[in-house]
Design a protein around this nucleic acid. Structure first.
Lengths: 217, 217
DNA sequence: CTTGGTATGTGGGATATGCAACAGAAAGGG
DNA sequence: CCCTTTCTGTTGCATATCCCACATACCAAG
């Protein structure tokens, strides 16, 4: 259960009164749970939909050879679920893993989609909030596609840096994860990425100190 | 304007009466337009949201050097728009281009999101339909990420083939576009992809005849 | 402080991938 | 029908990328 203040910040329950919020929890059989770093949040085995209310998590794919790849980076307002994305066509296993302490709401997607017979007001607001979250998710995923569809490591890095720069509204920004994870995120070899990073530094395209980067192009 | 039969098949206006449909067109200032192959449908300059009601279209990115990349493949129910995906962080230009004759509905996203003061029933159904379409879009994009995040051309191809196989429910399927476009779709060089395709055929992983493929792995 | 684990940084060698160029097949338009 | 354009299939060559191996730096736990 959220407190009244937490409810204000909730992406899913935004603009919903505390009274309505409590009724929704019951009516939709929504479940709220907290997680700590490295906890397994979801394994794509159920039809439940999860919304990250607070914290940070990642969607990870582990292929047959055990190679892990970050498929998505979820912050507050992040949505995940078998029915929403990553249906998992193959034999690889999928997981949502906690990075920083998380609060997550689980709701059965069927409940959201079912035409509420009484057409209740709170239901329609919840659907509207959900639509907003899905729009955000689509934006995230399309940004990801934008990066991954570049042909070289150099272009991938620059594209990703431009995105971060634009999101923060500054030439200088902090990577949301380690360089090792970044290599994983842009789906390339780490050492090759490091080499390319060095070149970018050498020709003055970027300046970097740890996870802090400044983009000059 | 749709006919009554067309309305039944409409992804966006599904489960909406003809009367309501006509009122929505007015109330939301929705515009319906038709396109022929190679027509420019949308250029990401307006806040409008487009829904493909019928036909096929592609979201294309053209970078500074003029290299075109297929970012998304839109069929019936496909959704696009600046506010929904591909915000376009960089200097590249983005376009939605018609592949096969299309009917497209344009709606101002603000209208969908604004809390309808009279909380009208048709509005909430429209939002729910929109949510479904966005969920579908997220699935498409995540499938795309799944393919693009593979480390080699071979893995990309196999991943994509598995997806098609799963979607059609058969080992045999037809590519939705040409081999040249496929190379573009998986973001690799065409000749390199052809080489890899030959290897896949040689070691018996796939059999292919034109755009028809059969997957054996 | 020491220790183990992880992240960062660098390099050599193997190779998959990209690029350019070509030719025949297929498709579309007048 | 012919003509033009696009698609398909293939090759040689250059190199960007991958893989492996190592060294240092950093951080958290004991």
């Amino acid at each position: 259960m959220l407190t009244a203040q937490e409810l204000e910040k909730s992406p899913l329950f935004h603009d919903i009164s505390y009274q309505d919020y409590r009724e929704i929890l019951v009516c939709f059989q929504a479940v709220q749970r907290s997680f700590r770093a490295d906890d397994l949040i979801y394994d794509f085995s159920t039809d439940a939909v999860g919304v990250v209310e607070r914290g940070q998590a990642s969607v990870i794919r582990i292929d047959e050879e055990g190679v892990a790849t970050v498929l998505e980076d979820l912050g507050a307002g992040g949505v995940f679920g078998k029915t929403l994305a990553f249906a998992g066509s193959t034999g690889d296993s999928l997981e949502v893993v906690c990075r920083r302490p998380c609060d997550v709401v689980f709701i059965d997607y069927e409940h959201i989609l079912s035409r509420c017979s009484q057409a209740c007001h709170r239901h329609s607001i919840l659907v509207q909030n959900m639509l907003q979250l899905m729009a955000g998710k689509a934006q995230d995923l399309s940004r990801r596609v934008d990066v991954l569809s570049r042909r070289s490591i150099r272009e991938k890095l620059l594209c990703y840096f431009r995105q971060l720069s634009q999101q923060t509204g500054s030439r200088t920004f902090i990577l949301p994860f380690s360089l090792s994870t970044l290599a994983d995120y842009i789906a390339t070899d780490r050492s090759a990425m490091m080499r390319e990073l060095k070149r970018l530094r050498e020709d003055g395209s970027v300046r970097s100190d740890g996870r802090q980067f400044t983009l000059f192009q």
